[in-house]
Nucleic acid binder design. Structure first.
Lengths: 329, 329
DNA sequence: CTCTGAAATGGTTACGTATTCATTTTCTTA
DNA sequence: TAAGAAAATGAATACGTAACCATTTCAGAG
């Protein structure tokens, strides 16, 4: 591999000068620059990122721990994050976390001397929070938060659950069910809280409503859906904690020959891009702002990296996006 | 930052021994290992990946240049690639290439001393091919190939175009149009070739058929669709070169109040996961094999990295997946 | 011309690890 | 118990760059 030393020798200057030509050319005589550039050209020299990282203690890498892309929410956020990071001249190390592989991901992440971390894999009570904090580098959670209540960007999940449920109730539905995820995740816990609040405010006893807390892979959602179908009183509306779940429920309904919204109303939360597709047209609750949550989060992370902010605690407000999967009972 | 030297001093051994404890513990006395591990624990030492990379000349990084995730094909492939790479203990630097940002991506990629590159951004005649080849590291293209005809994994694109078109013809449609992408990309060129071949074999003059070669972003597809609507003789079937285009066409049809397949048949190519969703149920052509193209490609790339193979030139066979967006005329 | 300060360049070192080679310690066996 | 082999450890170095400090070169003022 050709190094800056080789270039230096070839051009008849010192390695220091080669480095200067590339980093602070204003300190080098034009004629020298020319010489060095010619040598670089002819030797096909490409600076070694790794060596630079070592000496500068900056890797130019942002680590992203996303959820899996079969969840369209992470399609939207990953796109926003990666593109933003690259536009800022950084690189992205990406991981798709599931229940199985998180340990090995965290191991790898801690060794990588990234300049910052953005993640959506955090549980409400999660030891990894403290390990990451101990790294001493900027980090931010999006869509989930930790008990410690620091470094997060989220939507107003309680409100989102409330709005979704309230919408269903306002359409006249009274046989409702909730299908959400594990409550170790703040997002699911809070959205469910909104569900209960809405029921209460409408004078309904939450305890009478069937609720399902499932893992968010297709198989488990299917299992939950089958349980729904076997309920003594079939619900007329299904409130899903996320668009990903809602869209899968949609799929299962159609697979069984049901019609949405005639047989079942379905509502989600997140307002993912896919929900806007006219084949899906999912009624959902999402950000008031045009920006995606991923974008907001990565923007904030850079603020922290640039010391413009110290600690992010941001909860974005939400609104209803009525589409075609809900209707008057 | 605490280094292996600090650990060494704390444990009363040499830095070499610390390194050995972590990499070749079988060469260290158990008692010493214990001492060192205790020091590592107490000092909260985490080995520095960067320094290791520098001396070993291995970064443990695979660079992935994917297309944008709003194309569901890249959702599938990115998932497969990232998960496979991480499972093998490597990291992934990911980029989402578009027309605008490819130059800056390539700049960044060439500087990163990745151990290998996997990409789907290559044009048929593209100078970057030679620059990457000059890097001297393993690389592979998926879904596209270069004029030089080396280092690629693709589906049989000509055959795919043929099968799709033939299916439409066999359903009795005669007013067909083709909507594809720029022909600088091998994929589009070859799928279109299959389209023409099928017409020819059915005794139809390809020149009489309306064809559209558009960029693959939503706006341009919309523009093409509007042109289709203004054709003197409205086609009964639209052959899209990719599922991404087909699904967007589906969206536009529904937006305009058309019914698919009653008003328009739509067929795609790629058999992306999303096409299987019952709200979409897109008829398409895809891999015969169960594996995703991304998986096949990354598997092959590792073969090259392990010197099991030298140069990959792989074309996978395809078959029809009939679903609900096509029907007898 | 000479002096002075600025501009330009070079020598050396540090970054944190793995590796190579040398040395010390321990074990085995006669 | 001594000798030789094997095991365990350490010292020095390389990786390729940027940064620091020292030195040389140059331009302009007196």
């Amino acid at each position: 591999m050709v190094s800056s030393k080789d270039v230096a020798k070839y051009a008849g200057v010192s390695q220091t000068t080669v480095s200067r030509v590339l980093n602070t050319p204003e300190l080098v005589k034009p004629k020298t620059i020319e010489k060095v550039m010619k040598a670089i050209e002819e030797l096909n020299y490409i600076p070694n990122d790794i060596a630079r990282s070592l000496v500068q203690k900056k890797t130019g890498i942002i680590t992203l721990i996303s959820g899996p892309l079969h969840n369209p929410f992470f399609v939207d956020t990953t796109t926003a994050i990666v593109n933003y990071v690259n536009a800022r001249g950084y690189k992205v190390n990406v991981y798709f976390g599931t229940e199985d592989n998180l340990d090995s991901i965290y191991n790898s992440v801690l060794e990588t001397k990234a300049d910052a971390i953005i993640l959506s894999s955090m549980l409400y009570k999660d030891d990894i929070f403290f390990k990451i904090e101990k790294l001493g580098i900027p980090f931010i959670m999006y869509n989930r938060k930790h008990q410690e209540n620091r470094h997060f960007v989220e939507i107003d999940n309680v409100e989102a659950g409330y709005i979704a449920t309230n919408h269903i109730l306002s359409l006249g539905h009274r046989d409702i069910c909730w299908i959400g995820g594990p409550h170790e995740i703040s997002t699911f816990y809070e959205r469910y809280k909104g569900f209960k609040n809405a029921l209460k405010d409408n004078g309904i006893d939450a305890k009478t409503m069937p609720v399902f807390f499932t893992n968010t892979n297709k198989d488990d959602i299917k299992r939950a859906f089958e349980e729904i179908l076997e309920l003594p009183k079939k619900p007329t509306a299904i409130c899903a904690a996320t668009d990903a779940i809602a869209i899968e429920i949609l799929n299962l309904c159609l697979e069984r020959g049901f019609h949405v919204p005639k047989d079942f109303n379905v509502i989600g939360i997140d307002n993912v891009e896919l929900s806007k597709h006219h084949s899906i047209a999912l009624t959902t609750v999402g950000l008031e702002s045009e920006k995606s949550l991923g974008f907001i989060a990565i923007e904030k992370l850079f603020e922290v990296m640039e010391k413009k902010s110290a600690c992010i605690q941001q909860t974005e407000s939400v609104k209803l996006f009525p589409r075609n999967t809900t209707c008057k009972k």
